[in-house]
Amino acid sequence: MVPIAYYLVLSAVLFSIGVAAFLIKRNIITVFMSIELMLNAVNLAFIAFSRQWSQTTGHLQVNGQIFVFFVMVVAAAEAAVGLAIIIAVFRARNTLNVDQIDLMKL
């Protein structure tokens, strides 16, 4: 028997590590991976909440799980596009360092 809150805390931990990695990592591919980590944390939260509502209402609730299914589909589409963009950038600039991709100044 595990409190569902533990699962939710785990998802918060993973999400925060993802946010920190997004800000700190300097390789574009790793930065993109940290976004995938954040999405995974969201998925865990959805499944945990889905389970919680099943227990609260007394019968199976799958809405949260369906959401996760769609997040996976979207993540796959995003990965295809994102990696294509990364390849295009690499061809144009020959670097994968975020700090060197600075033709335009903020």
Binding site: F15, F22, I28, I35, V42, V81, G82, V89, I101, L103
Partner: peptide
């Protein structure tokens, strides 16, 4: 142009995960 696509993509997906959470 690819550089702008990359910035848009990375920051956009980052924001999407906040929206999802």
């Amino acid at each position: 142009s690819p550089e702008s696509a990359l910035k848009y993509f990375l920051l956009g997906s980052f924001a999407t995960s906040f929206f999802l959470y």
